[in-house]
Write a protein that binds this DNA or RNA. Sequence first.
DNA 1: ATTTACAAACAATCAAGTTTGTTTTTCGCA
DNA 2: TGCGAAAAACAAACTTGATTGTTTGTAAAT
Lengths: 213, 213
Amino acid sequence: MARERRRQKDRTAETSARLKAATIDLLHDRGFWRMSTVEIARQAGVSRGALTHHFASREEIITESVADMLRRVTDDLHRFAEDFADRGGSSDEIVDYIWRMMSDRLFYVTMEFLPEARHNADFKARLIPVVRAFHAGLDAVWTALAARSGVDPDRTRTAMNASMCLVRGMIAQTVIRDDPLYYTGLLDFWKTQLRPLFPVASGRGAEGGRAPG
Amino acid sequence: MARERRRQKDRTAETSARLKAATIDLLHDRGFWRMSTVEIARQAGVSRGALTHHFASREEIITESVADMLRRVTDDLHRFAEDFADRGGSSDEIVDYIWRMMSDRLFYVTMEFLPEARHNADFKARLIPVVRAFHAGLDAVWTALAARSGVDPDRTRTAMNASMCLVRGMIAQTVIRDDPLYYTGLLDFWKTQLRPLFPVASGRGAEGGRAPG
DNA sequence: ATTTACAAACAATCAAGTTTGTTTTTCGCA
DNA sequence: TGCGAAAAACAAACTTGATTGTTTGTAAAT
């Protein structure tokens, strides 16, 4: 393009980024074990030599790619939490948000590497800190909801972690069962269950923030 | 052994059963792609030649093993549904049952082959009918609960499918997060949510089952 | 006798990591 | 500031090991 001479830092950053993006793409489209480092290089538009230069092993490029992806999602999560706290959203919105976030490749990619984490202690260890950061992002969202609806934070966390698990299980099921109405039905049911737990304080503030158990 | 002369039917049945059991064991302990046909034969205590004699390919022994496993679980499900209908159990009990059923290797093994189903159309096609039968088994349980508590069957199905998804998502999370209290907390939360939807008809209160230790 | 169950050796493929070679960038130093 | 060595970014060929499906051989059941 414009610059014929590029700094090595820039070249490294760009090539690594392309390779990591290609890795996530293939993780999603081809699967953890079906994809090869040859494919990753091809998809990234670089030689396999470039790949081996920047990443010591197949396992390394995968762990770094997944870590990158989770960090990006975590950033989004924090932005959403801030925005949500500012304008005071509803529990419905949160359900929709996590459904969209998880459906958008995140949990499909997760299903690719979860089995590996279960069988490969190094891989799992490398993953845990970044997963913890992701959960901290989730907690930021839950905390915003708890503050906004005046509900006990612990109870909020439980309800929202359950929502996360529900969505995980739903997306797992989409692999075998393709039935959009089934999933919207489940989400609606879930929203209905959550609503009384997190009353919206706005407007005619009749509710003080307590829900009958 | 006791019998020196065995029918070929019996030999085939026994050897196949050993191989399929070994396949499920390794699927759980080593993972879909980490295990090899050599390992399966060794685990089953037969030669690899025996394996190739009874199963045309690696994919075939895996699909047949998984189908067998799902059929066994489905049988259990129907037995539970019958028993549950006879004595009129609580929704708490159902939550405990599906948690136990899914935690007992079933969903870990499922997480091993779900990605394969996502990327391998033949594999998926081979799986769908047996998964459908499994869901029919689940429906038998839900129907028993609906009849017993006089709740609309459709609503019951939705609530119970949500329970299944919740449990799936919880078990997926156990791969990364090892925290038994977290999971019992989620189960208790969910039982509390379900209880008012499925009131126990008798005057004895909703004492049902307690969470497993 | 002929088919079936099992056993073991074989062949071909494939992917990961290594090595070797070439071009571009960086940097110490005159 | 300019030059040359060193290092980094790529590229491609090579090595090795593992795995699957196939083939060939043998004992037992039909």
